[in-house]
Nucleic acid binder design. Structure first.
Lengths: 154, 154
DNA sequence: TCGCTTTTGACCATTCCTGACCTTATAAGA
DNA sequence: TCTTATAAGGTCAGGAATGGTCAAAAGCGA
């Protein structure tokens, strides 16, 4: 059985593809079409269409209200650099996964690189240290790997 | 009477056979089907479906959570597997470099993979922890990455 | 007995879903 | 215009559904 969140996310993704990266939805309408409560839409948006993941969300309440989701795309190298800079000193497994997933979606990472880097960053490799240290190591490694990919990718 | 772990392992094995090397289970469900506590599933997975043994395990918590187990061993990869098994719990940067270099020479790693993995394992990524921990982390990561390369190499 | 493997349960972390209540925008009436 | 109704969307906390971890206890073979 498919998860509601996945249904909603898929719907939005498809819409983004169709509409060339710029989708507009009506929250209540979509909710009732897909058979969920309206706040579910917010949940999906806040968990899967974050700026971190490369989306801009605008909305308006009241009569004629809407939610607009825009997929951000810019020059690959610049964006890559920006992402690398934004990683910071520490990053959780979930965050890292989100960032990588988005990079793949945006064709900034091949499936191959995505899997390799995901593996390198997954918690599985860090059982020897505490969560805190783990997240710091992950951030360092993530940046190194992304830089490496960038340099090799000509 | 058969040991519980064996039952669980057999079940997963059978599922892997059926599903062509890619099985997805629900931890709690399987546990109650087989009549054991959920953490037993974790025990079996961590003790018998490790990267060293040729398996990749991914999971997700929360509603609709799952555990996915992928088998990556095939005859072509016996040598690779052997190397992975020989890595042990801890490996220095120099040792790792030697092993990787050797694998590259033997065309078991592409230049690309060699560079990626070297980057991931280099001391540069581990400044946050002591040498001792560092070598343990490196070993874990190295094995995971090699398994991933193996899996992707079709 | 000693040491390794297995089993178990208490407690933790993450993800998802829902509903009550809140804020804002537009339209209709007075 | 001012007020009130209606139409959206937003927030948040709580609960449910999962899987993860860890250490203690139990089992077992040498």
């Amino acid at each position: 059985m498919m998860k509601m969140s996945d249904l909603v996310a898929d719907y939005i993704m498809k819409l983004l593809d169709e509409k060339d990266g710029n989708a507009e939805i009506k929250r209540n309408e979509l909710a009732s079409d897909l058979g969920c409560v309206p706040s579910q839409i917010n949940y999906v948006i806040t968990s899967r269409f974050t700026p971190e993941q490369g989306y801009i969300v605008e909305s308006r309440r009241g009569g004629g209200g809407y939610i607009r989701i825009t997929r951000v795309t810019t020059d690959k190298r610049v964006v890559m650099m920006h992402i690398i800079n934004s990683v910071g000193d520490s990053i959780s497994s979930a965050e890292a996964g989100a960032v990588l997933g988005n990079m793949r979606e945006r064709h900034m990472l091949s499936d191959y690189d995505y899997l390799m880097i995901s593996t390198a960053l997954s918690d599985k490799s860090y059982t020897a240290v505490t969560q805190n240290v783990r997240d710091r190591l992950r951030a360092a490694l993530m940046k190194n790997l992304l830089v490496t990919v960038m340099m090799l990718d000509q």
